[in-house]
Simulated scan of single mutants.
Amino acid sequence: MMRYFSVSTATWGSKIEMPAFEFTGSRALNAGRSGSAVFKVNDPDVSEVVTLESIAPLERILVAEEDGNAVYAGLIVDIDEDLDSGTVTVTHYDIWWILARRYLLANRDGTAPAGPPLTWTGRSLATLANLVVAKGMDGDPAARYDLPLIMSADVAGTHSRTYEGYKFVTVEDALQEIMNTYGGPYVDFDVRWAAGTETLEWVMRSGELTTGFWEWDATAEKSEVFQPRLRTNAEKVANRVIATGEGQGEDVLARSSSLFIDDIPALERVSSYQDIHEGVKLQERATADLYSANQTTKQFSFRIPVGGSVKLGDLILGGTCRVKTTGFRFLGAGWNNWRLIQFDFDRHWITLQMQMIGG
């Protein structure tokens, strides 16, 4: 059963159950998502709950719960009141929205551009992702900067990062750069109610993120798989990537990476990373860009019912969906393994977005 709550961003508690007529939400690997909620405030019982306090922008966050488990949380950002229809529509954004508005700074005042650089060395890429998020929560007043976010332990590695204050790098931009580095981690913020409490918290997951396995036979007579779709796309394919970094004209730093494994024409891409001034890091970006776009991609999606055999709370981004299908021209009949990269939901349906593992 799905229920919806408004929670205070000052205490991450103070739950108020919200009578949403419609509610949508979404979560994705390595990216922020959003959703909306519709309230029919012409109903006096609904109007009594949907107040200035319960849907105050930025002061409240909406949480979707299934069978007692929090499955999504979105910060209230936009409210559209329609008097003629008697509805209030709330737009909400997940925790990535906040991380896009936090910067990697030693000082958070007028001296920020001249402040000392932030430097971490000898860490794994997944740990660097954790460190930049933790730094985004380090500020004064602490009660406003802190987020109820659980992170994994520090892990040694061979990677380093330096962030100059005058560049004003956001936490989200730093995460994107780390995730897009060759061998970079996947990142997910899993939401939950803190153990033994009614307060909200997130668990930051960073790394390979392969936990989770679910199986569907879409060819079965009473299958719970609805509207299966396969998209095969070659628009972003490149078999040679040239990455450019700092510098201008013929002095610009550049590195390239190529891989010609399919019988297709040469397709080149030039990617600009003006903040990178080290050849080794620029080579990592060129290699990462190449391997992310060296082959035609297959993206698979289908819908399953809310309350079906696989619950919304069972889904873990990055996990494996094993699906049996038939009839697709660009996919052999039988079982295939897919990586769950996103799910979207409303009151009735969950839509799974997947990419083929190994392709």
Rank of each mutant, 00 (worst) to 15 (best):
V323K: 01
E284S: 10
G35A: 01
R303Y: 07
I178D: 07
V77C: 12
F345D: 02
V50H: 03
L312A: 04
Q353G: 15
A234I: 11
P113N: 06
K222P: 09
P117A: 15
G35R: 00
L315P: 00
P185M: 05
V171L: 10
N69C: 04
N294R: 13
G245R: 10
R322K: 14
R123D: 06
P116A: 10
G115T: 09
Q353M: 13
D109R: 08
D82Y: 06
G249Y: 05
S26E: 07
T127Q: 12
D217W: 00
A28S: 09
N180C: 11
W96N: 07
V71S: 00
E53D: 12
I350A: 04
E268F: 15
E198K: 03
Y273P: 00
G318W: 03
Y103K: 14
M356V: 12
G32P: 01
G207L: 01
V132H: 05
A266I: 12
V50S: 01
P305V: 05
L131S: 03
G313H: 13
F39E: 00
K40T: 12
R101F: 06
R229L: 11
E177F: 13
Y182S: 14
R123E: 09
G25C: 04
I98T: 15
L105C: 05
A100R: 14
D84I: 13
D138E: 14
W120Y: 13
K298S: 09
A20P: 00
G139A: 08
D314S: 09
P113T: 04
A153E: 12
G245A: 08
G196S: 02
L58S: 12
